[in-house]
Nucleic acid binder design. Structure first.
Ligand SMILES: NC(=O)c1ccc[n+]([C@@H]2O[C@H](COP(=O)([O-])OP(=O)(O)OC[C@H]3O[C@@H](n4cnc5c(N)ncnc54)[C@H](O)[C@@H]3O)[C@@H](O)[C@H]2O)c1
Ligand SMILES: NC(=O)c1ccc[n+]([C@@H]2O[C@H](COP(=O)([O-])OP(=O)(O)OC[C@H]3O[C@@H](n4cnc5c(N)ncnc54)[C@H](O)[C@@H]3O)[C@@H](O)[C@H]2O)c1
Lengths: 258, 258
DNA sequence: ATGTCTTTGTGAACGCGTGCACAAAGATGG
DNA sequence: CCATCTTTGTGCACGCGTTCACAAAGACAT
């Protein structure tokens, strides 16, 4: 879904479906919560409810990892936590670098959720010489010149990009060249990477736009008119929830093609 | 993908596939860039490359919006920008509230990418009385007590939750009760919402764990041994990229079920 | 006007993901 | 040891999304 290339048949060997992999962290979180409450076992039904998924789907997901359940009883919480952690590679710790220590980068650096899983911030990097040396979340910001050395010295294989969009591809290229093979990109750009490098993106703006689409649809359905002619330069009227429109709507060109 | 319930046949009427909706913002971004460079038209091939998708997929996506292309030429950039904006509901502005003004909330408030699309921050909300009145990104933080009033007065239909996980469901419930019907959740929790309310989540931790999974797989493939017996308490050795393991790995129970 | 060349729009095939429904496994009680 | 009851593991069918491949549409030159 977010991998750079089309990715052959997803994961080949003992292929765990990509959709399943994406849900494992969800299960793990729910299981960890149960573990903290010293709950010994859970049924697929209970766990599925906690994770917000269908119970059959959950059972099928677990079946890809092997058969760790006991019929008539359910799953052993501790054992499942261990198995999923191992499958996700969380039994080792992953050094991570964050590049671009602005608003977002700083927020991520201060986020405790990193270390609680197997991730460790190896370094914070920024191109701004003014920031170099400053402490963020107890770590000194390193200058971008050192990027390659940092990645190699710390065996970093995961990089987080929180630079402006314009710098993202260049930063990405340098990370990859230095040995990083997984990138989490917060900049609103499409990153091009060689085969074998995974890219996942988090794009706030896109999420909001998707919500806006559904929001508009909900509003449109309410006053469901057949007003969707082919030439509707002024379609939306007083859509519920949203303020009508900015005073003058003339700033949108609305150029017709021919 | 992130809607609360199973959602009947996605979007019923002139149903644009959910997968297509999720790509429209991507196209829009690429088109906006072209527009700024005053490029008059693009072929599906060029635009697809810019957006990082397959060109056939792009054409099919556009076909759901109607036929806006000209064979032999391509698509009119300005016109397409307008059509997609309209389809996404970006021709009106959407007032948004952000609840939880900690590290992440503050970063989002300072993010310029909101306003550049049709989103306007109507208010910043926090439960901490100490924060109330403080300015963040030029806006005063309002106390959580005012949440309902703010949502109603500003006709807010989109809410962003950046509180700790423990408070997220309660905040969500209050937002929904006040009239919010779309929620973007950054807290690592599964939110339960009534039908008709859309929830999308952004979970950094999950993204990293998915990357870790693939990272581990890449490393495992390199030294592809058939060491995947059913009882591998000590499987991973010196996995490339990651530091071996935290000194003692004894903190993981590894409890066997029976 | 006609031919050529480019590019769209879409029919059709395929593969993945989802969820139902049920047989088998195993626990538990008598 | 047997009967009953719970819950897993999975076969199967269905629907969505992706991609190929190509006919048709239209621009453009002559
Ligand atoms: N802030 C948010 O809430 C938010 C939300 C969604 C997306 N984003 C995206 O995340 C990125 C960062 O956002 P931000 O608000 O933190 O921006 P910012 O301007 O506050 O921070 C960007 C930082 O990157 C550094 N930088 C620039 N070029 C660099 C380079 N080549 N190498 C290393 N560092 C470099 C800058 O010095 C700056 O410190 C942007 O692409 C933005 O679009 C931000
Ligand atoms: N910081 C990150 O980079 C990051 C990354 C991923 C996820 N998250 C998640 O985002 C959320 C916020 O993270 P953060 O680092 O900003 O935390 P934070 O502790 O810095 O901020 C949380 C804020 O929420 C406020 N709050 C608490 N209860 C509230 C309530 N009931 N109503 C309104 N406001 C309330 C607190 O006063 C505080 O200001 C957390 O759930 C975290 O797990 C953060």
């Amino acid at each position: 879904m977010a991998t750079g290339r089309t990715h052959r048949p997803a994961t080949r060997s003992r292929g765990i479906p990509e959709a399943t992999v994406a849900r494992l962290p969800l299960y793990l979180r729910a299981l960890t919560a149960l573990s903290e409450r010293s709950v010994p076992t859970v049924s697929s039904e209970e766990l599925a409810a906690a994770a917000g998924v269908n119970s059959a789907k959950l059972r099928k997901d677990f079946s890809y990892l092997g058969s760790y359940g006991t019929r008539g009883v359910g799953y052993d919480v501790e054992y499942l936590v261990y198995q999923i952690s191992r499958e996700l590679g969380l039994t080792q710790d992953w050094p991570v670098v964050i590049v671009g220590m602005g608003n977002l980068g700083a927020a991520l650096a201060n986020y405790g959720g990193f270390a609680s899983r197997g991730f460790r911030i190896a370094a914070l990097i920024d191109a701004d010489a003014h920031l170099a040396g400053r402490l963020i979340a107890g770590l000194p910001v390193r200058h971008a010149d050192e990027l390659e050395d940092i990645v190699e010295d710390n065996q970093v294989s995961i990089g987080v990009i929180t630079t402006p969009a314009g710098a993202a591809q260049e930063v990405c290229d340098r990370l990859v060249a230095a040995g990083v093979t997984s990138i989490l990109n917060f900049a609103p750009t499409v990153l091009t990477v060689p085969d074998g490098v995974d890219v996942r993106k988090v794009d706030l703006s896109i999420e909001l736009q998707i919500l806006a689409f559904h929001e508009q649809r909900k509003a449109g359905e309410e006053l469901s008119e057949a007003v969707d002619s082919v030439t509707p330069p002024v379609a939306a009227k007083t859509v519920r929830g949203g303020i009508k429109r900015p005073g003058s709507d003339g700033d949108l060109p609305a150029v017709m093609p021919a």
